[in-house]
Design a binder for these strands. Structure first.
Lengths: 250, 250
DNA sequence: GTAAATTTGTCCGTATGTATC
DNA sequence: TGATACATACGGACAAATTTA
């Protein structure tokens, strides 16, 4: 019984072979960020394909955020340093085509940010704690100055927390999801600008969180984070979907 | 002071304009999955660009998982239904170029899966609970049958949990991260195949989790999930990095 | 500061294998 | 089965942009 087991062969286009080879070279470390690819004309010689094929491959690599090519650049396409831009892009389209609700995105933020703060409370260095302190001080200063920079300082705080979690993936994903959420409700926020009272309440929450981090009480910091995030975003979520958010509160 | 605020203009290539327009049509719902794009020759007329430009745009859209084109297809490129393939791809390259450690990935899984089970414990329907039960029953059957299908049944369980969480984003991300983790340690797992004892212990863990879900005790189910995941994966993580994983246990 | 050389962006034409009718 | 239309891939060409001498 049996006989040889053949694997299905997918017709692989020429440009895909080019993409694969360059991709492996970059991911494998043969090509480092800042280095240059050969020019298109040289690539067509090395791969024995036409320039159209080379260009299609470069477009794909560019869409994946691995390289960038500029017209007239005699050094060839540049290998880019790591950037979450591609992840950001695919998650944004995901949110649209999968019709993710704001509630789902906020819920995901609650999960990620509360996990980040829990880890930060247990693994942070004193220096990282100082960075969070600084961010909150700047938030307070921003309120006094009129509140224009409040949002940016808030982002700085959450980014400091994410870094202190010690997990790059958590840091990247919190950043990506946060910006998607903010994009979704930016119109509504512009319509109902942050009242000074709301900002002061947010600062109070942040100070409580920092206090919990200072004492190393991770679960408390996580709980406070989920609660303050719910308080802040629930108003933008349809009432019927708020129950799902509350499922993350105790 | 002031004067008009000008925005920096990036030189936008022709193929990008084509990508943007088709992308908006798909994300906006004008083009639905299953529908076809006009042929390349027709697209070059509608956009007033050359064939090469149209093709580069289609390559980008294909890389983002939005369309697929086959040679000879007289209906033109097909608009694809939603798929997390693009997200999977960008997160995989992210793991490589950002040099994510196995510990970071496992930690992220612990966060996501424990959050999913917490939500499932509070929001699940009886039908979804039955699906989890079925998955565990199949896991037990798989062990009796030799254990070949054990991994697949385990995946089915975690997928049922993710679905019961009610959050599509959590469902997608758990799936993506799980497959990346499994890819990373597939060699080691093949070298040290699941012992029957390990499988039985895993089943016992799953049954405890289900019991907690049945009684609606989300925090307990989440804690059990993190613990069993740590027990399962810690052996593959360098000892120095295990402390970060233990930070998620209480 | 200017001009030359190279590269990318774009266009056009053609040949070939393939899927559909 | 054949005819048609399609995507794939090739090669040549020109303009715009950039670097460099």
């Amino acid at each position: 019984m049996g006989g040889p087991r053949f694997e299905p062969v997918r017709a692989v286009r020429a440009y895909e072979r080019v993409v694969e080879q360059i991709e492996e070279a970059i991911e494998g470390g043969t090509l480092c960020p800042g280095q240059r690819l050969p020019s298109e004309r040289e690539l067509m010689v090395q791969f024995s394909v036409s320039r159209s094929t080379v260009r299609e491959a470069l477009r794909v690599l560019q869409a994946r955020g691995l390289v960038r090519s500029r017209p007239g650049d005699p050094h060839g396409a540049e290998v880019l340093p790591f950037s979450p831009a591609a992840l950001h892009k695919s998650m944004t389209t995901l949110a649209r085509v999968a019709e993710l609700s704001l509630a789902e995105l906020v819920q995901f933020r609650m999960v990620l940010d509360s996990s980040a703060i829990l880890l930060a409370a247990r693994l942070r260095t004193d220096e990282q704690l100082a960075e969070m302190d600084t961010a909150v001080i700047r938030m307070r200063a921003a309120v006094e100055a009129g509140g224009d920079d409040f949002g940016a300082c808030d982002v700085a705080f959450h980014d400091a927390v994410a870094r202190a979690s010690g997990n790059k993936l958590i840091q990247i994903c919190t950043d990506v999801v946060r910006s998607i959420v903010l994009d979704l409700i930016s119109e509504k926020i512009a319509g109902a600008p942050d009242g000074e009272a709301l900002m002061r309440q947010s600062i109070r929450h942040h100070e409580e969180v920092i206090a919990a981090v200072r004492t190393g009480d991770g679960p408390l910091a996580a709980r406070l984070t989920r609660q303050s995030m719910y308080d802040y975003y629930a108003g933008y979520v349809p009432p019927a979907e708020r129950a799902a958010l509350r499922a993350l509160l105790e």
